[in-house]
Nucleic acid binder design. Structure first.
Ligand code: ZN
Ligand code: ZN
Ligand code: ZN
Ligand code: ZN
Lengths: 171, 171
DNA sequence: CCTTTAAATGATATAATATAACATTATACA
DNA sequence: TGTATAATGTTATATTATATCATTTAAAGG
């Protein structure tokens, strides 16, 4: 985890990226992490896979496979659905992207170093998503499953609603 | 955490239906509830909608729309995708069924009297699902969303893994 | 009861998402 | 270099979901 924030002011929850944030930084970070992770694990981050990761990270909005395909086709005329789905499958396996089930879409993981199922807040108005990893939620679910004698393999936690920015915009 | 359970014996969680449970009872219950709810709200539980609800309740396994369609076609030769999707849309609106996003499937709600988003345990081995409504989980998510300034419209909580029966069967 | 109107269903077409299967190319490595 | 493996190309098709307009059914009011 990152170092502690300065203590003098309330922790600014950065769940949703500010409208004017420096997204090139998000992108660089994601690619750097990806390079590191794949190097470490011996996985091959090919040009294609890297490019698909970049496209997923073109913003904080989950993208459908066919959105990605459309973008990819402008540079690779022969790109087809399997091209994208295979790259996404790889990126999912490496924990570099998450699949948003309720949207049939994919979004970059901002913290891929340790594998995790994410908790997603998804704005219905602007389409932005934010990944949380609240351990209280996680614990509650683990307890609940344990009580039912259920062994967890994967958690899908997707919260749809309205993000702070869009709430302000409505007033 | 919720209030303490009686200490004398472990809480029997009935999350997953026993292999030999009286399912006809589940079905009757579901149809009775549905009739009551629709009567109360003035919604029209037509023969078709009722039949689709029965099919969804043919077991505790989420069914895809086309599974339902296949079954329906044996009785209504002219059934088509919209036939099923429209009935499902109605049943969803009435809270009589839930949609399982990670399976693109639908399952009956065992407790439709008060609207709620469910928490689902889904067994990858046998396909059975169980609906929980653990308030601790719910609270944790509400807190987490509130901290992010996010307004919740809908929660998708789907836990994939192995149910107790399938764990035993593996030994 | 009949008419008007709205809701539900029928019917056809097509959109959107995802995978199967096999051929070809690139990479690893012995 | 040759061989095996992984990745990508290519084509076809499966699966899930919706749009649109016609027809039928049921509710409501006179
Ligand atoms: Zn960003
Ligand atoms: Zn928003
Ligand atoms: Zn049952
Ligand atoms: Zn099972």
């Amino acid at each position: 985890m990152a170092h502690a924030a300065p203590k003098t002011q309330p922790v600014k929850t950065a769940a949703f990226p500010g409208v004017g944030h420096d997204h090139s930084h998000c992108l660089e970070d994601a690619l750097d992490h990806a390079g590191q992770i794949c190097t470490d694990s011996g996985a091959r981050l090919t040009a294609l896979r890297r490019r698909v990761l970049e496209l997923v990270w073109s913003g904080h909005r989950p993208l459908g496979a066919y959105d990605i395909l459309t973008a990819l086709k402008t540079e690779r005329r022969n790109a087809a659905p399997p091209t994208v789905y295979r790259a996404l499958e790889f990126l999912l396996q490496q924990g570099l992207v998450h699949r948003i089930e309720c949207l049939n879409a994919f979004v970059g993981c901002p913290d891929p170093d340790t594998p995790h199922g994410g908790q997603f807040l998804i704005c219905r108005d602007c389409g932005l998503s934010a990944e949380l990893n609240d351990d209280t939620v996680d614990q509650a679910i683990r307890n609940s499953a344990a009580q039912a004698g259920f062994t967890i393999a994967r958690k899908v936690i997707e919260i749809e609603g309205q993000c702070p920015n869009c709430q302000k915009a409505e007033m």
